[in-house]
Design a protein around this nucleic acid. Structure first.
Lengths: 127, 127
DNA sequence: GGGTCATCCGTGGACCCACGCGGATATGAG
DNA sequence: CTCATATCCGCGTGGGTCCACGGATGACCC
């Protein structure tokens, strides 16, 4: 027979190596959660806006993003529950700002660099 | 009435400033597309694995990630269609690798740093 | 050439998430 | 105290995404 020359683990060495380096399921879950939070046009632009303007209330935020107040409010709700945005209440106006522990590299590096990157790199093969 | 002391544009200056700095809808769409692609446990770990192991076939990849081959195949399908993964066919085995134009900062900076970040920063307020 | 194996692709169902609506809460003015 | 306002929250619906199944393709062995 010798038919099954190579079953599934074709390259067990590399598999083991990869396995040892892959972050734990817990880390991945946390990271994907964070990425999912940013993988939404409204939320992402909202983060940009707060990064630039320091703090904004929901109404102004909706204006800046050209979305309904409800949409902005909903986005803020999620970002707040994820700990990425904090609020400062002054009178009846609630000012929203990026949490001080907002992942700096993500903000500084990724946000700005990625825009440039997506300009230069064409990852859209002709359909 | 002077009741409406401040309607919606409470701080028009900041709104305008934020507006001018927010990336275009097109850039945001491209960026969220990329982020969405990584905001999935299987795909993200798959990227990690390929980054470490250079290239792996579907079967080995499934082993390394502890997922079904179908799941790995599906993840690869999407990543390939997004131009993030390329294939090298040797015999009847298809080796997958990260595209050479894979966003470097995203790979080098974000991937590794973010894991550390999610360790240090607790963005999970007590429920 | 026949058989087999690794993998890809199209389809269908289940699930999750985003958004709109209505009511509720809290703050401030008169 | 009463009213008006800015905002938050719970619910229901619709669209999109993930995944499992089946068939098909291409490559190797005998």
């Amino acid at each position: 027979m010798a038919v099954t020359d190579h079953e599934h683990p074709i390259d067990p060495e590399r598999v083991a190596h990869a396995r040892s380096r892959i972050p734990s399921a817990d880390d991945v879950a946390r990271l994907t959660g964070l990425l999912s939070m940013m993988a939404d046009p409204v939320r992402l632009r909202l983060i940009y806006a707060l990064d630039v303007a320091e703090e904004l209330c929901v109404g102004d935020l909706a204006l800046a993003l050209d979305v309904s107040e409800d949409s902005a409010s909903y986005a803020l709700r999620l970002l707040r529950s994820a700990g990425l945005v904090t609020t400062r209440k002054q009178g009846r106006v609630v000012y929203n700002q990026l949490a001080h522990n907002f992942p700096q590299p993500l903000k500084d590096t990724c946000l700005r660099q990625l825009v440039t990157l997506t300009h230069t790199t064409d990852n859209e093969p002709p359909a």
